[in-house]
Design a protein around this nucleic acid. Structure first.
Lengths: 220, 220
DNA sequence: AGAATATCCGAACGATCGTTCGTAGACTAG
DNA sequence: CTAGTCTACGAACGATCGTTCGGATATTCT
């Protein structure tokens, strides 16, 4: 049929296409983190990746398809670098702390050229309805939901002591500190914001009843 | 001479031009808050404002001039709505609290169509050097500096008790909570983030030693 | 009065955008 | 082998971008 995404892995044609898509998206995510999601232009992406303009348009059908694929690709990298390594820690406070630590490192290390991928992406598409906006919304919703789930798990297991409002506030404040650090670091070209944000996270968690030993990795 | 910005106020030609510039910039700031600073296009601005494309180009010499003027105009409105009213309160904690209250109201009331003007502007131009980036940087630097100055004044007058690190952290965290509220409200179309942010600000100030009565205006 | 300055507009420019078309090559299925 | 599918490319399209030019109008200066 025309659409066969559930094909076997052994199709030389699609394999070649997937390889090209991956190669293009590697450049696309970097470009988006700098230029924003609608600053992404097929022409510049073609020049940067070495492919022809029409090749890229064909691989993703149109620009919207490219944007959706780029969001998915950025999200996958974010998962690999930030979320997945944290899953090796115990659910609850340890995982929450690891998440925040990975998050700060991920921004500081400039995994994407222009800093946090989702900070660059969510700013552009807070307006303009459509599938792309929805994809960004879903990604952000899942991420914030995951942070809140870990906070709640930490409370349930007695590692933090908070009521429902406290859980909501803490899982609102931690990403707030992170995103402020990301933004200020990019604007001033300084690494100090990460230190301040880490200290802020540490104090918030301490005041929520976290054991000092559990916050060791948020130091320095 | 060619550039005479220090002219008297009585020149019908420049007066007419200034009126036009103001009219155009009123639309430009709204458009920028939605589309971002490089999403601003002279063509759409012309269509929205009723002026001809070449008229706008002439009034601001070129696009960069338009962008710089738009940043200045947005900053002026921000001053009028957020900063200036807070100056009626006593320097230090009262002014800091008024500042945060005005800030949340300013975003919630959508003074600009696309939410906070500087949130929309700083995201786009964290990369790409040039005069526009510098103008944005200066504006953000001044704003953050003002918040920190009021925090320090609150400490100096005994309304808050913080060391230097505490001052840095508090004046980092308050805007962080605000910007997170602005971003989440725009993304979900909800007003709840403002409530959460206000509660967060209140708790941070309380823990810094603020009198409960001084935080009355951060409720609800 | 005349020369100079500042808006304003329509028309046109080169550049870039997203998209489509035709064609050629690599691979699979019947 | 043949027919069909997918990838890749160059060329061209209409649209929009920022900018420039010529000319019309209004105001100020000498």
């Amino acid at each position: 049929m025309s659409d066969a995404s559930a094909e076997g892995v052994l199709d030389g044609r699609r394999a070649r296409g997937d390889a090209s898509r991956r190669a293009v998206l590697r450049h696309a995510t970097d470009l988006v983190s700098v230029e924003g999601l609608d600053g992404l232009s097929i022409g510049r992406l073609a020049a940067r990746s070495g492919y022809g303009k029409s090749s890229i348009a064909g691989l993703f059908h149109n620009k919207e398809g490219l944007q959706l694929a780029t969001v998915t690709a950025g999200r996958a990298i974010f998962m690999d670098v930030v979320v997945e390594p944290a899953r090796q820690h115990e659910r609850g406070l340890p995982r929450l702390v690891a998440l925040m630590r990975n998050l700060l490192d991920y921004s500081r290390d400039r995994v994407f050229e222009g800093g946090c991928f989702f900070a660059a992406v969510s700013a552009d598409y807070d307006s303009k309805p459509g599938p792309v906006r929805e994809a960004v919304r879903t990604a952000m919703h899942d991420w914030y939901g995951y942070v809140e789930a870990q906070t709640r798990a930490a409370v349930d297991s007695g590692q933090l002591s908070l009521d429902d409002d406290g859980i909501e506030l803490l899982s609102f404040s931690l990403p707030a500190l992170y995103e402020q650090a990301n933004a200020r670091s990019l604007l001033w070209g300084s690494q100090r914001p990460y230190v301040v944000a880490a200290r802020g996270m540490r104090e918030l968690l301490l005041r929520a009843g976290a054991a000092d030993a559990a916050l060791r990795s948020l130091e320095s």
